[in-house]
């Protein structure tokens, strides 16, 4: 198990779920605690405001894992996206 550091920029309110765990974001930053290591995780987010791109950074032990997803269609004020995220065991042990 490991903790993943999450940093979201470019939007204020994002619903983010990592491995079925909802992540609370304070000023864009939050932590997904105790996620399974060495497995593939489903990360998804949704944001319903702004018309700018969303930048998402997820790190384990200081190593960027991604996903840098986050594009809001030009004709919409909302988007959602997902990625399958691999957390290598060695990174999990460092975290």
């Amino acid at each position: 198990m490991t903790d993943l550091a999450v940093k979201v920029t470019s939007t204020a309110f994002v619903t983010m779920t990592i491995a079925n765990q909802k992540v609370e974001l304070d000023n864009g930053s939050g932590t997904a605690k105790g996620v399974p290591s060495g497995t593939e995780l489903l990360v998804w987010y949704a944001t319903g405001n702004g018309n700018d791109a969303v930048s998402i950074s997820i790190k384990a032990g200081g190593t960027e894992l991604g996903p840098a997803i986050g594009n809001i269609p030009a004709d919409s004020n909302k988007t959602w996206g997902f990625a399958h995220l691999n957390v290598p065991v060695q990174l999990a042990e460092q975290a």
């Binding site: 990360v43 991604g66 996903p67 988007t79 996206g81 997902f82």
Partner: peptide, 12 residues
């Protein structure tokens, strides 16, 4: 626009 997939990617 990233390694994942989102509505912006589909729209593009």
């Amino acid at each position: 626009g990233g390694i994942g997939c989102d509505a912006g990617f589909i729209a593009k």
